[in-house]
Design a protein around this nucleic acid. Structure first.
Lengths: 157, 157
DNA sequence: CCTGAAAAATTATTCGC
DNA sequence: GCGAATAATTTTTCAGG
């Protein structure tokens, strides 16, 4: 018999936890009753497992997914940011400040060529220009930015 | 009196729809009862509005958010991809093929310098190397790729 | 650690207004 | 869009393997 392939690589998750996470990942509004049916367990252990997964921080939340274009936020821009100072204290200041900018959907520290890569979501390019000028370039220790506007979002979140 | 600021820019959403979307975006598991209480409406219109938002495709789904590091998928890599052919047919082939790669979390077509920017999630760098060699570089019309591994995920999804 | 059923609490849904 | 009543589900608990 072929062992069922796990989606996730965490060692302390058994196949049932894996199924639970996968199901809730696909549909966060499942009731415990329906979830139990899908993973082939009764409700009692399923509820206990979900609680455990939540408390262990493996499941961090449940969120509605939105159509950004239809909500009027269809413009995605990637920004390479270079800092003037990359010592720990400066990085921390930048991290905190950039996290507080709502238009910044993602921020990743990158190894080479530039220091950070940001993903920014705005209404349109004009709106991005504003965010860049008024918010991004004002972030602490920013030396320079390079922006790349997405022509088409092929796959997202 | 100050008009309440809207989060979203879509013209056909009133302030109540805006609140509903925002609440469900924060907690997808809210019951209609609790949601109604929060937006200050009774259940009947709230349910009708949620259905409308779902059917109009503004709300596309409800998903559990996961701690990728704790699930053993803590490695984020951005990949710039350049194609050998950027005619419509080639773009379409690439779009379809890249969308089917599960490790590719995002894919954006970019205006200049390179053609696509991919966000790839893997267990670790070794695992990314495999994905790159076996999947990404085999995608249709790929001329070259440049990979940037994230040292730290400051803000995500 | 899981099952299954019973009890209690919420919820969705449908009315008339 | 409201608020109450109904009907359906769900959460939660508990005895038992």
């Amino acid at each position: 018999m072929k062992p069922k392939p796990r989606l996730f690589a965490a060692p302390d998750l058994d196949a049932l936890d894996d199924s639970i996470v996968r199901e809730l990942s696909r549909d966060a509004r499942l009731s415990m009753t329906e979830l139990a049916r899908r993973v082939g367990l009764s409700k009692t252990p399923v509820l206990a497992r979900v609680r455990r997964l939540e408390e262990a921080g493996l499941i961090t939340g449940y969120h509605a997914t939105l159509s950004w274009p239809k909500l009027g936020l269809g413009c995605v821009t990637f920004v390479q940011v270079r800092l003037t100072d990359t010592r720990e204290k400066a990085l921390r200041a930048f991290n905190a400040a950039v996290s507080a900018v709502p238009e910044v959907e993602e921020c990743h520290m990158i190894a080479s060529g530039f220091d950070y890569l940001l993903k920014v979501r705005t209404r349109d390019v004009a709106s991005y220009r504003e965010v860049m000028g008024e918010k991004l370039s004002e972030l602490p220790h920013v030396a320079s930015t390079s922006s790349f506007v997405a022509l088409e979002v092929v796959k997202d979140g």
